[in-house]
Simulated scan of single mutants.
Amino acid sequence: MKPVHLLAVALLPLTATAAHASSDSAWSAFQADVSKACVTAAKGLIENGRALADPYGSEHFGLAVVTGNAKGAKVTISTICVYDKKTKRAEIGGEIPADQLLVKP
């Protein structure tokens, strides 16, 4: 066998394991964890926050947008949240007015 083929055969079990490492239920639990941590992190800025979490995040971080009423005001705002997958801690960015957070196809 050629060395390249040996390497491919040696790595095959690792790729199979990685593909099965995260199930749909694990990704759903991850989204729920990110959402909960981000809403909690945003409590000083947003009342009754709701989070929209990226289903998978990046390699090291969960990502979400938290939206709700600005604390002590009747205006809707959002903030961007980053959730560290390793430490399970969330941090938020600054206030984004609702009229500036628009996504159009």
Rank of each mutant, 00 (worst) to 15 (best):
T67P: 00
T87Q: 10
G44P: 04
G49N: 13
P55Y: 07
G44Q: 07
G68P: 04
N69P: 00
L52H: 09
C81N: 12
L63T: 10
T87L: 08
I46F: 07
A90F: 03
A53L: 01
I92A: 09
G49D: 10
V75C: 00
I80A: 13
A73Y: 07
A90I: 08
P55N: 13
A53C: 02
A64Y: 03
A64S: 09
L45G: 01
K43H: 07
K71P: 00
K71E: 03
D54A: 12
V82Y: 04
V82C: 02
R50F: 03
L52G: 04
A73M: 06
K71R: 14
L45R: 12
A70K: 15
K74T: 07
A73C: 01
C81V: 11
G93Y: 04
T79H: 07
A64P: 05
A53R: 02
G44S: 14
I46G: 01
A90M: 09
K74M: 06
R89T: 15
I46R: 05
C81K: 10
D54N: 14
G57S: 07
E47F: 01
C81G: 10
A64E: 04
E91A: 06
L63W: 03
N48Y: 06
E47D: 15
V75S: 12
N69Q: 13
K43A: 12
I92P: 11
D84K: 12
K85N: 03
G93N: 09
I77W: 08
H60T: 14
